[in-house]
């Protein structure tokens, strides 16, 4: 989670802490032979597990990206260099999923961020049932993406769905809208489901950050006679820049990499309109073309890494703090 900074304790929890706890705590100590062995023994299980069950299959999967590896015909699985990547870039359908992925990420992220931020501002001040409220709005996080897809597939059902029923009762539409069947609305519907899932994550991360902003800053700002809006932009946002930046980064990665919701809700349809790169990858895997699916996976990791690096360089979350 903390990609950049590791040497500060945190101030989270229910209170606003005027001063972050004094500097650490653990300290980084030099150590020698015997300790090193103990530490290695501590690290080893984690490394073995992740190495064996994550990295070994991963690397073995990556090499397929450079081979003609199709389960439907394994008589020739020779190395083909970048052939799979070229095929993909020429594939109109793949290009479509890239476009959809961008819509999906941006379309989900922006409302999640805005609503989440607003909620955090509203929740900053204590009120009687705040704890209970936070626990309740945290619920979506306990539900799997796949199941969320199913829940919303049921609600957006064209004939018997509650969404249509409510909209018709409110006289906003006259006839049922085939949400998941119409290319015009399907992406909107899956994004609504994803927003539902992600809003609270933002709200809660941002709230935690807000609570660590020193009180004095606001008092000073009030003395200066700054209005609410100015306080927001000149005090609040700069103070929590790091959290905002890292939360956004994390969400981008997760949203990009979570085809489960789409898989459960539309399966990528209608007419591939809701297929994102990672859900298309599921389909190609099911078609048996492991080579092409792996090539897609490699591109995803590559693009996300590049994005993370440029993003962190651009927002420089570390500098913002000092």
């Amino acid at each position: 989670m903390s990609v950049t900074d590791t040497d500060r304790p945190t101030a989270t929890g229910g209170r606003s802490t005027p001063n972050p706890r004094p500097r650490p705590v653990g300290g980084r100590r030099p150590f020698t032979g015997r300790t090193a062995l103990v530490l290695l023994a501590f690290m080893l299980p984690a490394i073995v597990f992740v190495g064996l069950f994550t990295y070994y299959p991963l690397l073995s999967g990556i090499q397929m990206a450079f081979r003609n590896y199709n389960l439907n015909d394994l008589s020739d699985t020779s190395w083909v260099g970048l052939q799979n990547f070229r095929t993909l870039l020429d594939d109109e359908m793949f290009r479509g999923t890239v476009r959809n992925s961008v819509v999906w990420v941006v379309g989900s992220l922006v409302p999640q961020f805005l609503i989440g931020f607003t909620m955090a501002l509203w929740l900053r001040r204590r009120f009687r049932f705040r704890g209970a409220y936070q626990a309740l709005v945290f619920f979506p996080w306990a539900v799997s993406g796949f199941l969320i897809g199913i829940l919303f597939r049921w609600m957006f059902n064209g004939e018997f769905g509650v969404v249509n029923d409510l909209l018709m009762k409110a006289n906003l539409i006259d006839t049922p809208v085939p949400w998941l069947a119409d290319a015009k609305y399907a992406m909107f519907a899956v994004i609504v489901a994803n927003v539902w899932y992600g809003v609270t994550f933002f709200a809660i991360m941002i709230l935690a950050a807000l609570q660590s902003v020193p009180h004095e800053l606001y008092e000073a700002s009030a003395i200066d006679g700054a209005g609410k809006v100015r306080t927001l932009f000149s005090i609040t946002i700069p103070s929590i820049r790091t959290t905002l930046a890292l939360t956004v980064l994390l969400r981008v990665i997760w949203i990009f990499n979570s085809p489960e919701l789409i898989f459960g809700m539309t399966g990528g349809g209608p007419a591939n309109e809701t297929h994102i790169v990672t859900s298309y990858m599921i389909q190609v895997t099911q078609e048996g073309d492991y080579g092409r699916a792996s090539a897609m996976g490699v591109m995803v990791v590559f693009v996300l890494l590049l994005f993370a690096i440029f993003y962190l360089l651009a927002v420089r979350p570390k500098k913002a703090m000092r």
Partner: peptide, 26 residues
């Protein structure tokens, strides 16, 4: 959903702390 939700209801506060622990350092 119910089992995970009950767990989350009890633990959400600490999960938030854990998630934010590394990132929130203002």
């Amino acid at each position: 959903i119910v089992p995970t939700m009950i767990l989350f209801a009890f633990a959400s506060r600490y999960i938030v702390q854990g998630l934010t622990a590394g990132a929130v350092k203002e």
